[in-house]
């Protein structure tokens, strides 16, 4: 009996089971819920009263995975000045060129980065600063490269443009033993530049990471700052004349209001 069944229905039977398996929702097929469920807002607007932005993110990941969310700014070439001592005074002594450098690197994780990467993550899913910056400085001197990259990181961290927030992604079970839900509020610094940013969701299990979702987050100047910035950069002369006229009128008006005789 069993032998007949296998002979007569064996291959179609197995293919049928495989197709059914793919059609079951909630498994690693086209109906998998893995990814970013909520990203709010998609565009950060820098207006007159901007003091940093907030993006609310909700993601679904396989049960038991650790989660990393990161925002990576557009890559740029950057020339920085290196300070050195000349005649007892600290001054700029050398220009250092970095290439393919992310303007911004912000990372939020559910666990310590070192713990998440303990299995030796592939380059594309490495999270630490040095992996992101590798190859940005052309030098054969390892010690020099390490020093300058660490100084670069300190400089960017001082501006809050490079930041790592460990343990800030909250994970809770969504479907016991199958899915987890990850929630985070991504706070963007006041100094963030207008532009298009990459938003990535990475999941880690046993030290191995994989990119689960990738999308973009737009940051743009709006309203008065956009007007002022556009005018200052594109029509500098007229901007200067306007700035002088408004300052002059304001000064005279305030002087009249207070019956001022001015400073100096």
């Amino acid at each position: 009996m069993n032998r007949y069944m296998l002979k007569g229905f064996g291959y179609p039977f197995l293919i049928g089971i495989f197709i059914s398996f793919l059609l079951v929702p909630g498994v690693y097929g086209e109906h998998s819920p893995i990814g970013l469920d909520v990203v709010q807002p998609h565009t950060i607007r820098i207006g007159s009263f901007f003091s940093g932005g907030k993006v609310t993110v909700r993601a679904v990941v396989p049960y038991g995975d650790q989660v990393a969310l990161r925002i990576i700014g557009p890559r740029e070439e950057l020339a920085l000045m290196r300070k050195g001592r000349v005649g007892g005074l600290w001054m700029n002594v050398q220009q250092i060129h970095f290439k393919n450098l992310p303007k911004v690197y912000l990372l939020w994780t559910s666990e310590k980065v070192a713990a998440m990467e303990r299995g030796g993550a592939a380059k594309a899913t490495q999270l630490n600063y040095l992996s992101i910056l590798s190859g940005s400085l052309e030098t054969n001197n390892q010690e020099e490269e390490s020093l300058l990259l660490n100084e670069l990181i300190k400089l960017k961290e001082a501006d809050h443009l490079y930041q790592i927030f460990e343990g800030t992604v909250r994970i809770k079970p969504l479907e016991q033993g199958v899915w987890d839900q990850a929630d985070a509020i991504l706070e963007l610094p006041p100094k963030i530049y207008p532009g298009s940013y990459g938003l990535e969701l990475l999941a880690f299990k046993e030290g191995k990471g994989r990119l689960v979702h990738s999308s973009t987050l737009e940051v743009k100047l709006v309203g008065f700052p956009a007007l002022i910035s556009g005018l200052a950069l594109q029509k500098g002369l007229w901007y200067g004349i306007l700035a002088v006229l408004i300052a002059m009128i304001s000064g005279l008006l305030i002087g009249i209001v207070f019956s001022s005789k001015g400073g100096h």
């Binding site: 002088v244 300052a247 002059m248 304001s250 000064g251 005279l252 305030i254 002087g255 009249i256 001022s260 005789k261 001015g262 400073g263 100096h264």
Partner: peptide, 12 residues
């Protein structure tokens, strides 16, 4: 300073 000196010059 344009503003401050404008009002001051006028007063003087």
């Amino acid at each position: 300073i344009v503003a401050a000196s404008a009002s001051g010059t006028y007063a003087h």
